[in-house]
Simulated scan of single mutants.
Amino acid sequence: MDIAAPAPAAAPAPVTLPSRSRMRAEVLIVLGLSLGQTAIYAAIRLIERYMDTAPIASQSTTLNPSRSSIDWIDLIRQVLGIGFALVPVALALYLLSQHGASSRVRLGLVGPARRWWGDVGWGVVLAASIGLPGLALYAISRALGQTVRIDTSGLPDMWWSATILLLSAAAAGVLEEFVVVGFVLTRLRDMGRSPWTAIVIAALLRGAYHLYQGWPMALGNVAMGLVFGWVYVRRGRLAPLVLAHWTLDAVAFIGPEVVPHAWLEALGVV
């Protein structure tokens, strides 16, 4: 299918792009401060898991660990961690806004209310189409012994825990979609990469920083990246991806706290 012609929210003003060498440096700097660094550590962690004497299926990872035994210090550190995690997003937006460009226009974060309602609809569709197969993939890969047990919350049972989990899900959606799709994929296209080449590279990056969970989940995230990248290039709107990602993570983070444990065991996800 030809995806060379995106559907932008508004006709952007002419943009003078930086040189290819500068754009390449920008991508490396943003990734080095954020998800590129995470991808390298995730790859090393996967190697470490397979070298461990315990099988990978008996290992676990906690996505939202407690940061202090003192409750109010834990809360402060959680909020600070979420805030500082979004600094690379601010850098990416700043770089996309150089030379008279508008990052909001380039990422499709403009338009009338009907466009935003359309984003909501697409976000819900994406979340459903990715979430259910993702849950099945996790259960199957756990049964095959190739994925670690994922504990989505290590927070104490406090009044603020659910709020932090929802904010953490939102921060993950903003960070990953703005950096991987909004910045990296856009810059790759600015450097002359074809749409599908840019989509594949961005999807492989998405899979790489999920390697710590096991290779099946990394492949699942590559598939998610291909779908998200295709939707972004076709529609020229980033908001549906952020909404879908937040929905997926919010359900994953909050779900185990409210769904009966027996149900999770029956689904094979614990």
Rank of each mutant, 00 (worst) to 15 (best):
Y209V: 01
L226Q: 01
V200C: 06
H261N: 12
N64D: 13
A10F: 04
M217W: 00
A10V: 14
R104S: 14
I3M: 02
H261A: 14
G111L: 04
G32D: 03
L35G: 10
G118F: 04
F178S: 12
L166E: 04
S58F: 09
G81E: 02
A42F: 02
L264C: 08
A198T: 01
E176A: 10
L96D: 05
I29H: 02
L144N: 05
D157F: 00
W116K: 12
L107M: 11
Q78Y: 11
T152Q: 03
R67A: 13
R234C: 10
L80C: 07
L109G: 12
G100S: 00
S21D: 13
L63I: 02
T247L: 13
T53F: 06
L211G: 01
D157K: 08
Y41V: 11
P8S: 15
L107F: 13
W159F: 13
Y50N: 13
W160P: 08
N64A: 11
I82F: 08
S102H: 08
L126A: 06
Y138F: 07
Q78A: 09
P55N: 11
G207D: 02
E48R: 15
A4Q: 10
M217L: 14
T163W: 08
A244R: 02
A85V: 07
G121K: 10
N64K: 09
V222W: 00
L132C: 00
I40M: 11
T247F: 08
V180F: 07
L188D: 09
Y50W: 07
G111H: 04
A101V: 00
W160Q: 12
V179A: 02
A113E: 11
S68C: 11
L63F: 02
G173Q: 04
V200R: 07
V87A: 06
A85Y: 12
G173Y: 05
Q98K: 14
W246Y: 07
G121P: 07
W160L: 12
V181G: 06
